[in-house]
Amino acid sequence: MKNFIFPVLARKAYAQNLQYRGTHAINTVASAIFGFIHVSIWIGIGENNTLGSYGVNGMIHYVAFNQVCLWITVFMTNGLGIIPSVRTGQISLDLMRPVHLFYIAMSREWGEIAYRLLYKSVPIFALYAITFALPLSAEPAVWLLTICALIMAAYMAICIQYLIGISALWTTESNWLVWVNTALVMLFSGYLIPVEWLPVWLRSISAYSFYPYLQYHPTRIYLGYENGGALLGALPWCIGLTLICILATRVVRGKLEVQGG
C-alpha cells in the first residue's frame, strides 16, 4: 500500500505547485540575485585576501553552488505543513490513517523538492554556469556522489522540519523553531562561510551536528575538494533522525492534544 501512496502524494504536491509557477519564478529570480550579491561580496574580500585553498574563483563556485543547493536542502515546507493541521484538528485524522504520519508528510515533501529542483535549482544552476563558469564535471562519479549527498541532505532537512511540525502538539507557537533552524543552517552548514573558517568553538559545534551535510559537504564534493567519504558521515544522521521521527510520532499517538478543542 505504501508503495502506491508515495508516488501519488509526491505527484499531487508537485502538480499543486505548478499552479503558482509565475509567483515562484519571481522567487527564483530573487534567489539568483541574492547569489550575485553574495558572490560580489567575496570578490571584494578576495582583492586583499587569498581566500585559502579556494582562491577567488573557487569561492565564486562555492558560493554559487551553495545557492543552487538551498532550494533542495534548506528551503523546505515549514513544519512539513503539520503546524496548520494541528490548529485545524486535521492532525487527528492524519494520525488515524493506516499509513505512518512521517511517511505521508515525507512523501508530499519529496514532490515539493522535485518541483523546486526543476523550477528553481536547475535554472539558477544554468545561469551561474554561464555567468560564473560554474564547472561541469566530466566525471560520472562526481555527479553520482553529489546527487547522493543532496538526497541525503534533503532527507535530513525533511526529518528536522517534521520534528518542528509535530512540536506544535506541545506548544501553541512552533514557528519560531523554523527560524531558529534557519539561523543555525546559515551559520553551521557552510552556506555563508566555509566551515573550516569558523572560529574554533563554532567549528566544533558544526562538526558534531548534521548541518555541514546540508550544504558544505555536497558543495565540496561537487567542486572536487572531497570524495564520497563525507557520505559515510551523513548516513548515521539519516538513520538517527529517522528513528527520532518515528519515536516522536509514537509519543504523539499516545497523547494527542488538538489546539482549540
Rank of each mutant, 00 (worst) to 15 (best):
L70V: 14
T249E: 14
M186L: 15
L223N: 04
V178N: 14
R87G: 01
F4W: 08
F210G: 00
P7D: 06
W143F: 10
T242C: 05
V251E: 10
P212Q: 08
T182P: 00
G224V: 04
L51E: 05
P140W: 08
T249L: 12
I193N: 11
I130T: 09
H61I: 06
P218V: 05
S40D: 05
Y225G: 04
F210N: 01
L134A: 11
S31T: 13
S174Y: 06
A30D: 06
N66Q: 13
P236V: 06
W143Y: 09
G240V: 08
L223I: 06
T73Y: 04
W176R: 10
P236F: 01
Y222H: 09
L231N: 07
V99Q: 13
H61K: 05
I221H: 06
M76E: 07
R21S: 13
T28N: 04
Y62F: 14
M1L: 08
F75I: 08
W201V: 10
Y225T: 09
Y103D: 04
E226H: 13
Y213W: 12
A157S: 15
L232S: 07
T146R: 01
A105P: 01
A13H: 09
I166V: 14
F102S: 01
N57S: 15
C245G: 04
M152N: 02
N66L: 03
G44H: 11
P135C: 09
A114V: 12
N175F: 13
R250V: 06
F75N: 09
S189I: 06
I45K: 11
Q19K: 14
P84I: 08
G260W: 03
Y213P: 03
V195K: 02
I147S: 03
W42T: 05
K2Y: 10
M106Q: 10
Y162A: 03
I104K: 12
I205T: 09
A149T: 07
I151D: 00
K120Q: 13
F102T: 00
S53E: 14
A154R: 01
A13F: 07
L93I: 13
T28F: 02
L9T: 00
M106T: 11
L169W: 00
L243M: 12
W42Y: 15
I41F: 13
G111M: 02
I205L: 15
P135L: 13
Y225L: 11
S92Y: 08
A129E: 03
M76N: 12
A149Y: 02
